[in-house]
Design a protein around this nucleic acid. Structure first.
Lengths: 345, 345
DNA sequence: TCAACCAATGTAAACGTTTACATATTGTTC
DNA sequence: GAACAATATGTAAACGTTTACATTGGTTGA
């Protein structure tokens, strides 16, 4: 076991093992490959022992050259310091590991140019599959994967114009906006605002649509709608908090958790209390919400389930590449807490 | 550009490009490799054009077989849904990307067996280098990397028994405990407790040592020390909160951010106010701390800087593998806020 | 005019596997 | 003991690159 301690010793190959075990390289290869082949148990034993003695580890790169399987899956997310994404990734990685893959998790940081560069590198690595949360939901990069016939699943961010052409796993953004708004309406609120990220990705727009649909059901139309959107920063969130108060609404849907953070900090710093001064429902369940008192009513997205589903869909696609694309949309649930009070006009 | 849309077309190789450009494969290879070779500009142009037309992407696996560079670096952390780790990773990834590498980020989930499995897979992939935050700080797995001569850097979690044998980047745990405690002592506190994770990794123990050293400087000795350690869960943290109060101390060092979360939640839920009822200093700067009011005085660790340093140290080791190991320890700073009040006996 | 050289390109042998195919060894059956 | 199957193992040609080396022309200088 100590052999490989010699500095700069070249890596142990199948040939070294074959020589030590006194067999051919084919035998060694078969011992370490999936494909079964009749083999005298004692010979297999001898090979295994020689390999152990030399510290042989099969070279996955060489192996993928002739064989087809590369042993690498990629997950490319838009922001990986964001717990919403990492929660999905944890299970993706462990499922992939169980299936014998290494997963390379990459971060485009919401930059389509970085995303493209990363995808090109991943294609160069001949990855077996990819789960992609597209930065700013730009489709061209997903097309790259299709062009190079790499099985892929789009996660969380859809391309509305070509929705049914890609394998997709996500949650129901429309429903999350709808549920949040209806929850407030049912509590008697009528002056309800919606705040969120003014982004090129369709998620928040879908939530706004859900908000509008709920408002319409209560015969509240465009002139009573108040939709505040802004950039994805804490300051912008704080600013929305101020605008929310200026609007004089009795309730608000905080439609995106990162901007919601700024909004709630603004409330906290200006002694705006919920639900006394304003009722709020937030879409998302960030870790910091644990500290809010009273606790905030949230719309919870099934992150872990989405991650698992993305992984298993990817494996399906890898097995049957010709399979027509499917879209799997997960519902959200309302976690009711103490940030909404009944409103009697 | 459309050519590769044909389903199941085999991947484009250097040969296809050579044929279309009417040259030899060597010429194509040189066009796409680092090594310069005199080449008629028009020929280079023809090759580039043929490659673009076919959508050629160099197969990194094949390339690494003869050449030496694999193009993959690995980062293996112990918990990747933890922002402390992801903050370090963001910069590691972008630095590695600038240098032309793909980073595969893996998660051992504090399980040495998973860690070993992952490392074996990474070794099989013949990664060019690895940054490792050892799960539970078990050394055998790091030894694997050395055995296979993969340049590596240990990040954040040290092996005390063989500290100087590994390349290491981390922060000064002793100092963080010391600074936090001294800050409280300087504010007049004498009955000071320390709470944290009772872990097999030496980080928290070092912080306890820092706490003790500061206490000794003020002639407070073992009989006045109160060190509470527990498992890494929210419940355990809450429990420590209760024990802290039972101890009747005037101040506490919350020595580990995950257990601190439970402790602070306990305080919040039982109307224990800081700094009125108890002064606290926390080691760490989790995102949720932004919501605490009054704001908590923290010991900040330079996560981003540590990430960058780990990356650049890794590149140094990759360039000069024979280089004697170095250890780079970053100091922490006190971020003073409103959770400590002066204590007059 | 020709040796000597240089610039530009091609040839072919690696790299470490996989796997179709060939061969050797054994056991059955008549 | 010949014929035939299994069963067990080896041979060698891929896979898509890199790169040492060989080759081809064309300049140059004497």
């Amino acid at each position: 076991m100590r052999q490989r301690d010699k500095r700069l010793a070249p890596a142990v190959t199948i040939k070294d093992v074959a020589k030590l075990a006194g067999t051919s390289i084919a035998t060694v290869s078969y011992v370490f490959s999936e494909r079964e082949r009749p083999l005298r148990p004692e010979l297999r034993e001898k090979v295994l022992q020689a390999a152990a003695e030399l510290g042989y580890v099969k070279n996955a790169a060489a192996s993928s050259l002739k064989g087809k399987r590369r042993g690498i899956l990629a997950v490319l997310v838009a922001q990986f310091a964001n717990t919403f994404f990492t929660r999905m990734c944890v299970d993706i990685e462990s499922i992939a590991r169980e299936q014998g893959y290494v997963v390379t998790l990459c971060n485009s940081d919401e930059d389509p140019a970085q995303e493209r560069l990363i995808l090109e590198r991943l294609i160069a690595q001949r990855i077996d599959g990819c789960i992609l949360c597209p930065a700013l939901a730009r489709e061209e990069n997903a097309t790259l994967l299709r062009q190079y016939q790499i099985p892929y699943v789009i996660l969380e961010r859809a391309f509305p114009a070509s929705f049914s052409e890609h394998n997709f796993v996500g949650h129901d953004n429309f429903q999350s906006g709808y549920l949040a708004t209806r929850h407030l309406l049912e509590a008697g609120h009528r002056k309800i605002a919606f705040s969120g990220w003014d982004s090129p990705i369709p998620n928040v727009r879908e939530r706004v649509n859900g908000y509008r649909a709920a408002m319409r059901e209560y015969r509240l139309t465009a002139d009573t709608e108040r939709v505040l959107l802004g950039p994805l920063t804490e300051v912008a969130g704080r600013d929305m908090g101020a605008r929310l108060l200026a609007e004089g609404v009795s309730a608000a849907v905080l439609g995106q958790q990162d901007t919601a953070k700024g909004t709630l900090l603004h409330f906290q710093d200006h002694n705006v209390r919920w639900p006394q001064d304003i009722s709020v429902v937030m879409i998302g369940t960030p870790e910091w919400a644990d500290f809010l008192r009273p606790r905030i009513t949230c719309i919870q997205r099934p992150e872990k389930q989405m991650g698992r589903e993305a992984a298993s869909l990817l494996f399906e696609v890898m097995h049957v590449p010709s399979r027509p694309p499917v879209q799997r949309i997960f519902p959200c649930v309302v976690i009711e807490r103490e940030s909404v009070k009944r409103w009697e006009e």
